[in-house]
């Protein structure tokens, strides 16, 4: 869309001219909700850069931020899909951990080839997600409740099945290096890009494309916006919901694989906060919890904002609690901005 086309539209639905600056901003955000997090990201990088100096722009700092954001970005992408349908998925972290445990245990306990174990882990993730989707769409249970239950069930299953055992990094490196695939590093200008980070970026771009340029993507938005209207228009609402939750489960399982590369071992004790972190990234990224609006690029920016704050405050020597405090403020501000944007109606 060209900028002239945009300005014509802006004038055409507010007759009588005299639009204030604020109206313009509101309208721009309405068409492009990820502008806010992008702006916050740029401003926070600048502020921390000024406060900390060149150390903040060092390749090491970038490496740390990207590593931290890789997992949250991938799980956040799954969470974004679900939240765009006006749902929520509290089980993302549990699916991620249990899938990684399946990949590890199938290899080491049953001696399956790592490739096959990984396939099993990915299928399990998709299956757990599909069960969430079936319960939400066919049984019409609230997503919050379904995934709260699924979170508990999968976490318990995770500890029971793994017998609370960790598979050591050396063993994985020696016997099943495929599980460490996403730890592979590429050094670009002093910054380490792991395959996991690159995968995260590719996944976000791919999903942004799918949401914008395929019928399925448009249906995901329509289902979140007004399921009744979508149904009457001829959209398969149930099928769309089930597929969204299943795809989210699959993405979480992929995050589990990436996580094995990140921490080296397979442990049932990680990812306890991943669900909250992913929701945080989505909300700061400007995706509406009411469904139907927001872009997945926003989630990436949201995750990066959290990463920048975490690292920036740490380099400033501030208490880690300041990070949580700032993120809390950002969440509330983001939801406030969303409410304001949604008021754009004539």
């Amino acid at each position: 869309m060209t900028s002239t086309e945009k300005s014509v539209s802006a004038d055409s639905f507010r007759h009588g001219g005299g639009r204030s600056m604020l109206d313009r901003v509101q309208h721009a955000l309405h068409t492009n909700p990820s502008l806010v997090p992008l702006l916050v990201l740029v401003v926070s990088v600048l502020v921390f850069g000024i406060l900390i100096g060149p150390r903040f722009f060092s390749p090491l700092a970038l490496t740390l931020i990207l590593q931290q954001v890789a997992i949250v970005g991938i799980v956040g992408a799954a969470q974004s899909l679900v939240i765009i349908t006006a749902g929520i998925d509290l089980s993302v972290g549990a699916i991620m951990v249990l899938s990684s445990v399946i990949m590890g245990q199938f290899t080491f306990r049953y001696g399956l080839p790592p490739g096959l174990s990984i396939l099993c882990g990915l299928s399990a993730g998709a299956l757990f997600g599909a069960i969430n989707g079936l319960l939400v769409s066919i049984m019409r249970l609230p997503p919050f409740i379904v995934t709260l239950g699924m979170w508990q069930i999968l976490m318990a299953a995770n500890f029971l099945y793994s017998r609370n055992e960790t598979i050591r990094a050396q063993d994985i490196a020696a016997e099943a290096p495929l599980l460490h695939l996403f730890a592979a590093k590429q050094n670009i200008a002093g910054t380490d890009f792991t395959l996991g980070t690159i995968f995260m970026l590719a996944l976000v771009l791919f999903l942004a494309f799918v949401l914008r340029h395929t019928a399925w993507g448009r249906h995901v938005y329509a289902v979140g916006d007004d399921p009744g209207a979508a149904e009457l228009s001829g959209v398969n609402v149930r099928g769309t919901l089930i597929s969204v939750y299943a795809v989210a489960g699959l993405i979480c399982a992929l995050a589990g694989w990436v996580m094995i590369g990140r921490i080296g071992s397979v442990s049932p004790n990680v990812g306890q906060l991943t669900n909250i972190e992913s929701i945080t990234a989505v909300v700061i990224g400007g995706i509406s919890l009411f469904g139907g609006r927001g872009s997945i690029m926003g989630t990436l920016f949201g995750g990066l904002i959290v990463g920048v704050f975490t690292l920036g405050l740490r380099l400033l020597g501030a208490d880690a609690q300041w990070t949580y405090l700032m993120i809390g403020v950002l969440i509330i501000v983001a939801v406030g901005v969303d409410q304001w944007i949604r008021k754009v109606t004539s």
């Binding site: 019928a215 448009r218 249906h219 938005y221 329509a222 916006d225 007004d226 009744g228 209207a229 979508a230 009457l232 228009s233 001829g234 959209v235 139907g292 609006r293 109606t345």
Partner: peptide, 20 residues
């Protein structure tokens, strides 16, 4: 009677919803 439109989506989106 309720028009069956997705408010957040564009006119084009709504015209072709379900038969893109």
């Amino acid at each position: 009677q309720t028009l069956a439109m997705s408010p957040a989506l564009s006119i084009t989106d709504n015209m072709f919803m379900g038969r893109e």
